[in-house]
């Protein structure tokens, strides 16, 4: 699946490079996704609360 398509040189070069990037750091990404979906730990940092920005403004309806 790594054969370049003859159509557009830039396009197929770019596509090939993306394909390589996709194939490369699979383990790294897997661990990233895993940590991203880890259940929220009990200690929620203070910033993890909602703060209405002082500038909140809505158009009058």
């Amino acid at each position: 699946m790594t054969t370049a398509k003859p159509r557009s040189t830039t396009g197929s070069k770019l596509a090939n490079s993306v394909r390589r990037a996709k194939a490369t750091p699979a383990e790294e990404t897997a661990s990233e996704v895993k940590s991203a979906t880890k259940p929220a730990t009990p200690e929620v940092p203070e910033s993890e609360t909602i703060t209405a920005m002082p500038s909140n403004r809505v158009w009058p309806d």
Binding site: A40, S47, S55, W59
Partner: peptide
């Protein structure tokens, strides 16, 4: 956490606010 959207909405003039309310949410 960089808050760019909030900065953006705060950059408007008082008489012409950004037309959508922007709130900042961390976790949860």
């Amino acid at each position: 956490p960089q808050g760019s959207a909030s900065h953006w909405s705060r950059s408007s003039a008082d008489d012409k606010p950004f037309p959508v309310s922007v709130i900042s949410v961390g976790g949860q």
